[in-house]
């Protein structure tokens, strides 16, 4: 199977601080992959490097065979950890905005997901609650037909019911050719949705495996393993 993402000796420093240190891994296409690690382990840095928002200090990134740039951005749909939407817009305006920007945006799918969540497209974003805004943002990102979805903490700020909805949105919109990279520290909630995972610790990859392999070999969940690996 081909790799959607490859890192070769990837390194990122902020001043003297090593955020990511000599990372060499490959991620196969067609899987849902968890990017797991405690706060400050380098998850967001890695995602920003892939999305092209940060430039590596050293090493190489290949996205579907391409270096980060205009062409790689066409195949990536990125959900940042922060809310970046314009508050003055209506949801429907936001959809048109995305249609203009991305040729792979599926408007029908977006409207369908909004109606399933009872979100009125005529509402202005600033009138929506924080959790609802996050859902809208995820709907925008998942409505693109991208090859690689980068979801930075998609379930961080929402209630458990919304969390289930978000995971369901991810499962039902995912096609087998696409890859989804989800960063989170809430492992127990998303474990059953993942094929594989990567553990980051202090900017290094300390483990890459499949969820069921861990369960088969160690008789415990990835969540339990994580708690052991990062015990204070």
């Amino acid at each position: 199977m081909s790799n959607i993402l490859e890192f070769k000796n990837l390194k990122k420093q902020y001043g003297k601080f090593n955020a990511l240190n000599d990372i060499t891994i490959s991620l196969p296409a067609g899987k849902i992959i968890g990017l797991l690690g405690p706060n400050g382990s380098g998850k967001t840095t890695l995602i920003k490097l892939v999305s092209g928002l940060l430039i590596p200090t050293a090493g190489e990134i290949l996205i579907d065979g391409l270096n980060p740039g205009t062409d790689s951005k066409k195949v990536i749909s990125y959900l940042p950890e922060k809310n970046y939407l314009n508050d003055y817009m209506k949801v429907s305006q936001l959809i048109d905005f995305f249609v203009d920007f991305y040729s792979d945006f599926d408007k029908t799918a977006a409207l369908d997901m909004l109606s399933r969540l009872d979100i009125d497209p005529e509402r202005k974003l600033k009138t929506l609650s924080k959790g609802t805004k996050e859902k809208v943002q995820l709907i925008m990102v998942m409505s693109r037909k991208a090859k690689l979805y980068l979801l930075d903490e998609p379930i961080g700020g929402v209630d458990p019911a919304a969390r289930d909805y978000i995971l369901d949105t991810i499962i039902s919109n995912y096609n087998n050719e696409a890859t989804i990279l989800i960063s989170t520290h809430l492992i127990a909630d998303i474990e059953s949705v993942l094929d594989e995972f990567i553990f980051l610790k202090n900017g290094e990859v300390i483990m890459q495996s499949s969820v069921d392999d861990v369960r088969e070999q160690q008789g415990k969940s990835v969540d339990a393993l994580f708690r052991e690996a990062f015990k204070c």
Binding site: K31, D164, I171, S192, V193
Partner: peptide, 14 residues
């Protein structure tokens, strides 16, 4: 597969 995965809240590949 997709509907079952969605009901079970698990990965479709699984």
């Amino acid at each position: 597969v997709r509907e079952l995965a969605s009901r079970a809240c698990v990965n479709p590949n699984t």
